[in-house]
Amino acid sequence: MFDQAELNRLYRFCYSLVVNETAAYDLLQNSLEKFLKSDKNKENNLGFMYQVIRHQFIDDYRKQSKQHTIPFEEQDYIDFDVKTLESISINEDLTQQILEYLDPLEREILFYWAVEGYTTQQIAEMLAMPKGTVLSKIYRMRQRIKQQFNDPQDQASLHNEAHKK
């Protein structure tokens, strides 16, 4: 059984996926039902529950939303890490907007990194993706956030960085 702290933790994960409080609660409720039905007493219930939520979210939301396609070349390994996200400074008031701007997978990565403190390798394991794919997504997310929300000075540095690449 999940205690209050764990339920809140799971709720935050749900929120990071759907960026809406009501939808997050619905997602958590549905996932909990599935978890309870599974009759599994796993050693890592919380980890298993993250997977249940993830699959439930895919079932409920991702099918309805437009898939964000990533150009093939960006799938290649890019020498970036989640730490590169740390260099981004944003205006505090923009956090909600950024979350809404990002796609669900990007938000999920952001949640694992910022809230759960996972490494790139751990995030890749949670998402069942190659580490290179996760890194390319982080790189892309960083670009998108900077382009959309940073001031002109940051934009210029981003532009230079892209040229170097």
């Binding site: 709720y11 740390e86 505090e92 952001l110």
Partner: peptide, 25 residues
């Protein structure tokens, strides 16, 4: 302005279930 990590952390940590929702779950 503050780091993205800190902002996201702070923002998401503010989100929590209401006592009614917790009780229900």
């Amino acid at each position: 302005k503050q780091s993205l990590k800190h902002s996201v952390q702070q923002h998401l940590n503010k989100k929590s279930l209401s006592s009614q929702q917790l009780k229900q779950l």
